[in-house]
């Protein structure tokens, strides 16, 4: 098996989340995960719900186009989904379009009501003060008014990693480089890629 999941239903998993340490504690300059969110979408064509993330696995159900789904996780080119009639299984990633997400509110109650009405109106993502700087800084206007910051750029340079060190790290991670040609818009191999 190339995938696993410890909890079978999103509600169970969500309860696990709220039972855990208070998420707010980790909203610091460290990179906590984004506010808990679960993507919802719909099939963008008629497709099959499979028992495993493989085309040759048994079909759980045939899903018509525009079948609403909740995104439960990934395995490469497959998404584990739950349908409105509580069926779970895997569909090809390309066969699903995301429509929004159910976000965790600060109380958590909003999410529970969201999952109760599984496909209730999607919550908008609101600005939250998660990083030390927040949303300011990178709007179009703010970028236009920015003054160069050479000191910060020197810091960026100091974090650079040499090619040799990056290769060593990739080896430790057992990342295997391979030769792959670029492809054109139709998937045909093309030469080059440099100028």
């Amino acid at each position: 098996m190339k995938y696993s999941y410890s909890l079978k239903r999103p509600v169970d998993r969500f309860l696990g989340v709220v039972a855990g340490p208070v998420a707010g504690l980790v909203l610091t300059a460290l990179l906590a995960p984004a506010a808990w969110a679960q993507a919802v979408g719909a099939t963008n064509r008629a497709t099959e719900l499979k028992s495993d993330p493989r085309a040759d696995s048994p079909t759980v159900a045939s899903l018509p186009r525009e079948t609403p789904i909740v995104d439960l996780g990934r395995s490469s080119g497959w998404i584990r989904v739950q349908t409105g009639d509580k069926k779970t299984g895997w569909v090809r990633s390309f066969h699903v379009s995301m429509k929004g997400n159910i976000s965790e509110s600060s109380s958590g109650g909003g999410f529970l009501s969201g999952i109760t009405g599984l496909f209730a109106p999607v919550r908008r993502e609101q600005p939250k003060t998660i990083s030390t700087v927040g949303i300011r800084g990178l709007s179009e206007e703010e970028m236009k008014n920015a003054k160069p910051n050479p000191a910060e750029f020197n810091k960026m340079k100091s974090y650079a990693v040499s090619k040799a060190d990056a290769q060593a790290a990739a080896q430790r991670a057992r990342l295997n480089p391979q030769t792959v040609a670029y492809v054109d818009a139709n998937g045909n191999p093309v030469q080059g890629g440099g100028k």
Binding site: K2, Y3, S4, Y5, P10, R13, F14, G16, V17, V18, A19, G20, P21, A23, V26, A32, P33, A34, W36, A37, Q38, A39, D71, L72, G73, R74, S75, S76
Partner: peptide, 13 residues
């Protein structure tokens, strides 16, 4: 295994 959505991550510690 690959938990892919935040939903599949364990609670933030």
């Amino acid at each position: 295994a690959r938990p892919a959505t935040p939903a599949q991550r364990p609670a933030a510690s």
